[in-house]
Amino acid sequence: MSSTVAVVLAGGLARRMGGGDKPLRLLGGRPLLDHVLARIRPQVAGLVLNANGDPARFAAYGLPVVADPLPDHPGPLAGVLAGLDWAATARPGAVDVLSVAGDCPFLPGDLLVRLEAARRAAGVPMACAASGGWTHPPVALWPIALRGELRAALLAGEKKIDRWTARFGCASAEWPAVPVDPFFNANAPEDLAEAERLLSSASGGPIGPASAINPGDSP
């Protein structure tokens, strides 16, 4: 198994969803987070959740929960930094962190290997996912060695992921967006309804069975 660990970004304000925790909204009778973990867990050596507020609401998952290291919800870059900081201290053997959004239930099973391949082929330190002609900067592979530079940028007010990654170089790996975009994210109630439709029509497609998800698994 890879030594890479993953951070699930769940620290947003979910304004379009009406507030609360998007990853705990139900899809197919299970929280979105269950679907995300089922897809990511087999690919990495460890998992951490980035979420603000009381971490007890995620206690059933048996995973470490880390808050944004900066106040006022500066965006997903802060969640990435939280994951990098956690990996640097809790997983000293790790070199990279894979970041994924907590509201993307259809993530591909080859996410990590293809991001690693894209980064290596381009000779750059980072890689992000793409589909349907769009890049998805929060779904990316990050070297832990860049956490100092990322912290400095955030303290200077940087919030835009692709502007920061462009300083160092970021490749992209493309996935097909049909029949289901693997990076579909449930940002609003209508998106969640569409995800239900996609899930019911998948018939064993992009999401693993519920039996593959065990919230009590060790990180």
Rank of each mutant, 00 (worst) to 15 (best):
R25F: 09
E194I: 02
A90V: 02
L146R: 03
L26G: 08
A127D: 06
P189K: 00
A88C: 02
L146E: 09
E116K: 06
V65A: 04
R197W: 06
Q43N: 01
G11N: 15
Q43R: 03
A10F: 08
V66A: 09
G148T: 07
D85Q: 14
A78M: 06
G204E: 10
R16C: 07
P219G: 10
T89Y: 02
W86K: 09
P69I: 01
N52H: 05
G133Q: 11
V7L: 11
V95G: 12
N187G: 07
G83H: 07
P76K: 04
A202H: 10
G83R: 00
A87F: 04
I207C: 15
L141H: 09
A101W: 05
S2R: 12
A130T: 07
L33R: 08
P143R: 13
A156P: 04
L192H: 09
P71G: 11
F184A: 13
P31A: 05
D54Q: 08
A117L: 07
G46D: 15
L70H: 14
V100K: 03
L33K: 14
W134T: 07
A59R: 15
A38E: 11
A212P: 10
L77D: 05
L141W: 03
N214V: 10
D217Q: 11
R120K: 14
D162Q: 14
V36D: 11
A212E: 13
L154D: 06
A212L: 06
L84M: 09
V48E: 11
R167Q: 14
A129R: 14
K160D: 15
R39E: 12
A78T: 00
L27W: 15
